[in-house]
Design a protein around this nucleic acid. Structure first.
Lengths: 220, 220
DNA sequence: AATATTTTTTAGTTGAGTCTAAAAAATAAA
DNA sequence: TTTATTTTTTAGACTCAACTAAAAAATATT
């Protein structure tokens, strides 16, 4: 069965909202990310349920069926591979590729994606450190931790970001933070939960809790 | 003003039908290439005329305005650059890229297209020998001739094709014809206008008039 | 437990792009 | 030049994916 542009976006967004927990997703949550109204979401959820891609009971929220998850992972795979292409081959910065990849992710051609994967030498992660689902529909778990959960004294390496909006990424640029940055947590400040961190051995800088929540690290 | 997927397709097709002459294009001709019905075309032509992209008087046919031509050339440029990418970088054959490029041509990002152009080292033609419009909206005239117009005795080189359907290109593959093939016209057969041609100095083979019409050459 | 608030769904519209069937105009044939 | 044929347009309807406004259900508050 074939998927429209709109359907693919809904499945992708439901997938994003489902990551890391089992709870059903609310209509409003979907509406916010699709940039539509709740009423429109209700219509689409009924349609997706009819096609067997989601489990949906009215007033009870929604979750992906195995088939829906497979489609969503396919879209995410394409999105992330295209992002690698845009950064590695086209020379874009990591904060410039999201919107273009949002378009490219809907290009339909299995053989193209396999060839692209090979051309990029089978990358495991995208330019934001996010894992690239395999062509069999498996999302690798890289086991990264949130910087906001690090205790004082910990040393870690910046491996990814949990948000790829341009404003957030540009802020990281300004703070000299990028994939691979060595982080040494000096102190967690009780007042605002901001963190004092030394970045690549420079004198410590402050990172707000809001930012730290969206930084993924592994212990060094 | 922004262009929808459908509008871009219509402009591109009107451009294709207009190449090489001044006459207005008929509603039916557009309907055939867009794979829609004449009634749908009439609606769209009125809409495109309102936006100033075509000149259209009912019952009189349609032609592109300067603005419409600019948009069409932008689409053609993207289509052909992506085709070069698919063949040169992804390893597709020339008969496999049309459908994928039909999707990629609608990706909207000026900076992406400029970077792609640079990445491909500013190609002048696509994998079918068609000229790539410049970013200023100029379609280079390569001055190729049709093989069907060659007289007996002429030597020429295959530079392009006037049709990029997979079945046609696959036939050329079977006949050992590709860009760069050296052609020596032995004889034009009066009965069916087929041509006896030696390809790369091999013993002469027959090429039907229908095929010869769609082969573009330059004199050797 | 009753009431107020928030969330979600229903009902009815809208616009884009398509369709079919019928009418009108242009073109070709007698 | 009249008639027949083909082409094009109009009129009305359909699907998809969105919308607003109002009703219904779920959740929170008193």
């Amino acid at each position: 069965m074939s998927t429209s542009f709109a359907e693919e976006n809904y499945l992708k967004i439901i997938y994003r909202l489902s990551e890391g927990h089992e709870d059903d997703i609310s209509t409003n949550a979907v509406a916010e990310l699709t940039q539509t109204k709740a009423a429109s979401v209700t219509d689409m959820l009924r349609k997706l349920a009819e096609k067997g891609w989601v489990h949906y009971q009215k007033y009870q929220g929604v979750r992906l069926s195995p088939e829906g998850e497979k489609i969503a992972l396919g879209i995410v795979r394409k999105h992330r591979l295209w992002e690698v292409f845009l950064v590695e081959k086209m020379g874009f910065n990591w904060d410039e590729v999201h919107e273009i990849a949002e378009q490219l992710e809907h290009i339909e051609s299995d053989s193209l994606i396999e060839k692209l994967d090979a051309f990029l030498e089978y990358p495991k992660t995208d330019p934001h450190g996010d894992p690239i689902p395999t062509k069999n529909g498996v999302m690798p778990d890289l086991g990264y931790l949130h910087l906001s959960d690090m205790k004082a004294g910990k040393r870690c390496v910046l491996m990814g970001v949990a948000k790829d909006s341009a404003v957030f990424l540009q802020l990281l640029n300004k703070m000299q933070l990028s994939l691979g940055s060595a982080l040494h947590v000096q102190e967690v400040n009780a007042f605002d939960r901001s963190i004092s961190v030394s970045i690549d051995n420079a004198p410590a800088a402050f990172i707000s809790h809001e930012v730290a929540k969206n930084i993924l690290v592994k212990l060094a």
